[in-house]
Amino acid sequence: MQIFKSENKKSNALPLLAVATFGLNVLSLLLLIFNGSMLQQLGRQLAPQSLVQLVDGRVITGDPEQNLERQPETIRRFVGESMSLMLTWSQQQPPTTVWEISSQLVANDFKEKLKSQLINLNPDRQFENVNRGSENVLVIQKISQPIKISNGRWKVEMFANQLTFTSYDKLGKSISFNKQILIKAINEPATSLPNAPLPLHFAVYRLGEARLEISNVCEIQDKNCSGNSNQALP
Rank of each mutant, 00 (worst) to 15 (best):
D63Y: 05
V19I: 06
Q40G: 08
L31T: 15
F22W: 10
D63I: 14
S6W: 07
K5Y: 02
Q40I: 09
P15T: 00
F22G: 08
A13S: 07
F22R: 06
K9H: 07
T61G: 00
L17R: 11
D56I: 00
L39D: 13
G23K: 03
R58A: 05
L32D: 11
N35W: 15
I60L: 13
L46P: 00
S6V: 06
G62F: 05
V55S: 05
L42Q: 11
Q2R: 04
Q53W: 07
N8C: 06
M38R: 09
P15F: 03
V55H: 03
N12Y: 09
R44D: 12
K5E: 05
R58I: 00
S50C: 08
K9M: 06
F34N: 14
Q2G: 10
T61V: 01
I33W: 15
Q2T: 10
L32R: 10
N25P: 02
G36Y: 12
M38S: 11
P15G: 01
S28C: 09
F22H: 06
E7D: 08
I3S: 13
F34L: 12
L31N: 11
L24M: 14
V59T: 11
M1R: 04
Q49F: 09
I3F: 09
P64D: 01
S50A: 08
M38G: 01
D56L: 00
A20V: 08
L31G: 13
A13C: 04
I3Q: 13
L51Y: 08
Q41P: 00
S37K: 09
P15D: 02
G57I: 02
R44K: 13
T61A: 03
I33K: 15
Q45G: 01
Q2N: 10
K9Q: 05
I3L: 14
P15R: 03
L30M: 08
T21Q: 10
I33Q: 15
N35S: 15
N25E: 06
G62T: 06
S50F: 08
G43K: 11
K9D: 07
Q40Y: 15
L24P: 01
L51K: 05
A47Q: 05
S50L: 12
T61Q: 06
Q45A: 11
R58L: 04
E7R: 12
D56C: 00
L27T: 13
M38C: 02
S37L: 10
N8G: 01
P64H: 03
E7T: 04
Q2V: 02
T61R: 02
P15I: 00
L30V: 07
R44E: 14
S6Q: 13
K9A: 12
G23N: 07
Q45Y: 11
L16T: 05
L32F: 12
E7Q: 06
Q49G: 10
I33S: 15
I3M: 08
I3V: 12
